Amino acid sequence: MVLFYYLYSDKEILESHGNIIYKIWFILYITLEEVFWLYMVILINEIVLNLKEKYEVLNQKFVQVLNISVENKFMSKDVDLMTLKEIKKIKFLYRYINDLVERTNDLLGWPTFCLMAYTMLDALTILNCLVVGEYMQLIFTDTLELFAIIIYTVYIALSCDFTSYEGKKIITLCYDLEDKFPMKSPIRKELLEVAVQAKHFPPKFVSMGLFDINRKILLSMVATITTYVIAIIQFNSVL
């Protein structure tokens, strides 16, 4: 649909170039651009949401193991040993998932950076055209494209934020459940170690080591775009 809007708004451009090859390349470029960004967004979100599901399963298993120990009123040594073994296993799996997050950052850092940079540049270009009053015939279709890119960016930022939150939830679970065990209990000590580890090495998504990908980045992008728009307005008012 966006492609047809492009072709309609750029009718003068296409008519000024009678070469059919130019028209084909123009259509191909627009199509490939839309397909590329859509594919990248789907790929990134599938990976991020898969990690989120792993954290959810791990947290559920964590609560289930501890509740079994709490429900056992006599707290035999066998139960304690079994619980400690399960907690250490969960701690290992938590580190493993965090390692997957780091590998995801290495693999998908540059696509997320390019997407967010493209979003900001596209927004500034359109706003500059509105302020200057140039290329107004392309504003409608460019705005449609920008709207799609913004949706992609917001979706990725929120997915990463929700996944990070789910990974940090184990800290709250440790502090909530430790009160159910005696002070000198080895299980309580192990819970504190898990909480400290998760607190010092929380899962987070980073774009090329420059900034964290979460809901806060959306406000930062809005603030940056607003700053540049003000500069554009002031510059044009001087001219």
Rank of each mutant, 00 (worst) to 15 (best):
I171N: 04
Y165H: 07
A231Y: 09
E86M: 05
V70K: 03
F235S: 10
R188G: 00
M40S: 08
N67F: 05
M1C: 03
I150T: 09
L177N: 00
R188L: 00
I217C: 04
H17I: 15
F235L: 15
K204L: 12
R215I: 11
V63F: 00
K180H: 09
K204C: 06
A148M: 14
I230M: 07
I42G: 06
L51H: 08
P111F: 12
L7F: 13
A148G: 10
A123R: 09
Y22N: 07
L239H: 10
P203T: 15
K169M: 03
V57W: 02
Y175W: 03
G133V: 12
D106G: 13
D122A: 15
K216L: 12
L3K: 06
V229W: 04
V65S: 00
N45Q: 14
T83R: 00
G167K: 01
D122M: 07
I171M: 08
Q234A: 12
K89V: 00
K88T: 04
G18I: 02
V79N: 02
D10G: 07
E178Y: 06
L124Q: 11
M116E: 01
W110A: 08
Y175C: 01
D78K: 00
Y8R: 13
V222L: 09
I225M: 11
D212G: 02
F162K: 11
F74Q: 09
Y29I: 02
I225Y: 04
H200V: 12
V63T: 05
I24L: 13
T125R: 15
L146P: 02
W110K: 13
I87E: 01
T224F: 10
F140Q: 11
L115K: 12
V35I: 15
F162Q: 08
K180Y: 11
V131Y: 06
M183Y: 14
T104I: 03
G167V: 03
A198C: 15
V101N: 03
T141I: 14
R95V: 02
I30Y: 06
Y118W: 08
T153R: 08
T119I: 08
L210F: 12
M120D: 07
F92L: 06
M82Y: 08
E53A: 09
I233Q: 12
I42D: 06
Y29L: 04
I139W: 05
N45F: 01
H200L: 15
H17N: 12
K61N: 15
L192G: 07
R188Y: 01
E134G: 05
F36A: 08
A123I: 04
L115F: 10
K204H: 08
E34C: 02
E166A: 14
I156V: 11
A198H: 10
V238M: 13
E134I: 06
T119P: 00
V206P: 01
V79I: 13
I187Q: 01
L177G: 00
I232F: 15
S185W: 02
I42W: 12
Y8P: 00
N19M: 11
